[in-house]
Simulated scan of single mutants.
Amino acid sequence: MQGGTDVDSPTPEGPRTTGYRLEVTESVAEGVRRMAHEEVSGALARLREPRYDANEALHDARTRLRKVRALLRLVQDAVGPDVFTPEDEDYGSAVALLDDARESYVAVRTVADLREDFSEVLRPSAFVDMQARLEERHLHILHHTLREGIVPQVIERVEAAERRIDTWSLDTADDRQLERGLRRAYERGYSAMTRAYNGGTGRSAEAFEEWREEARYLWFLYRVLTPAWPPIFEAMAEEQLRLASSLGVGMDLGHLVGLADDPSLADTPWPRLALRGLAHERRLHLWAGLRPLGRRLYAETPDAFRDRMHRILEAARGPTGAAH
């Protein structure tokens, strides 16, 4: 799943919104504020009425809130640390409150994927009981999230955050801010990738998780900037999503490795040890396979990347910002 849609459907009240992209005719301040309102509004709608698929609704809400964090990171120099730090933490804590429901759902899917991937060497009954126990565990966590105060707590936090969007100080937000924000996101991913492949096993796991986080934020930012050069930014976003999604699978496998230590998942330790081993080996194989893609997506130094983004944005939006 890739989160929410970019463009809202038309409504009787008016035309559909522009979506998660900064139009070349918009100022940075106008675009960032509009996108933040749209994503927060969409997240609240999903949280207030999850409809038929609560898992998908919670995932979409979390993705939308992360997209707001990406916007804040893009203009963090303009809003300043006194606004950026508490706002970033507030959106992050709202997402974290929904983590247990998402992680328990993904654990069930990850076991199912492993059973399918290794179907030629596993018995049909392999891990069936563990998967059933994980499903039961997930339903309990999901019920707790939806019915016992967590979602209402998230809604309350996000509603308060929504009211503060119009108070963000964006007077100095311009295309130079975009370039600095892009460079920051790129440099963090570049550094995390370097640590991931140069560190020991424990350090690598942490670095891969950090790389996934930064790769996802850079994917969001490429989507924001797509109107500046659609064919290029769409292609960059597609490949960045491929990287972020694959790194996410690695995180899911790592979470399953940790869960396999829980004695409540099996009556004997052997199924848990087998599952742990499969998940660990699959994660190592995945990490090794991502290296060529990572080297292509982070082929430039951060300064060279910033300079290239500067030239693209200046050509699309003019030397002073939004093109007219």
Rank of each mutant, 00 (worst) to 15 (best):
M1Q: 12
G3T: 10
D6T: 09
T11V: 15
P12S: 14
E13Q: 15
E13F: 09
R16E: 13
L22A: 04
E26H: 01
V28E: 00
R33V: 02
H37Y: 09
E39P: 01
L44Y: 05
L44S: 09
R46K: 15
L47E: 02
E49G: 10
E49L: 02
R51G: 01
R51A: 05
D53T: 07
D53R: 05
D53C: 10
D60L: 05
R62L: 11
R64S: 07
L72T: 03
R73T: 04
V75I: 03
V75W: 01
V75S: 01
D77Y: 09
A78R: 05
V83G: 11
P86V: 11
P86L: 07
D88C: 04
D90Q: 15
G92Y: 12
V95G: 04
L97C: 14
A101W: 08
R102E: 13
E103G: 02
T110Y: 06
A112E: 11
L114R: 06
R115Y: 06
D117M: 08
F118K: 00
S119E: 01
V121A: 00
V121F: 01
L122W: 00
R123M: 00
F127H: 02
A132S: 15
R133G: 04
E135S: 10
E135G: 06
H138A: 03
H140W: 14
T145V: 01
T145D: 05
R147G: 06
G149R: 08
I150G: 13
I150R: 10
I150E: 08
I150C: 06
Q153A: 15
R157W: 11
R157E: 06
E162T: 09
W168K: 03
W168Y: 04
S169L: 10
Q177G: 14
R183S: 00
R184D: 14
E187N: 07
S191N: 15
A196P: 04
A196D: 08
N198I: 13
G200W: 04
T201G: 14
E210C: 09
E210T: 09
E210S: 14
E214L: 05
W219Y: 13
W219G: 03
V224E: 09
L225Q: 02
P231N: 06
F233K: 05
E234C: 10
E234R: 13
M236G: 03
E238S: 08
E238P: 03
Q240L: 05
R242Q: 09
V249Q: 14
D252K: 13
L253M: 09
G254Q: 05
L256F: 08
L256N: 00
L259C: 07
P263Y: 11
S264K: 08
A266L: 01
T268M: 03
P269N: 02
L273R: 12
G277S: 14
L278N: 11
A279M: 06
H280D: 13
E281L: 12
R282S: 14
R282F: 04
A288K: 01
P292E: 04
L293S: 06
Y298T: 10
E300F: 08
E300I: 00
T301I: 07
T301P: 04
R306I: 00
D307N: 05
R308N: 08
R308F: 12
M309E: 11
M309V: 12
E314K: 07
A315K: 12
A316Y: 10
R317W: 04
T320V: 11
G321P: 13
A322M: 07
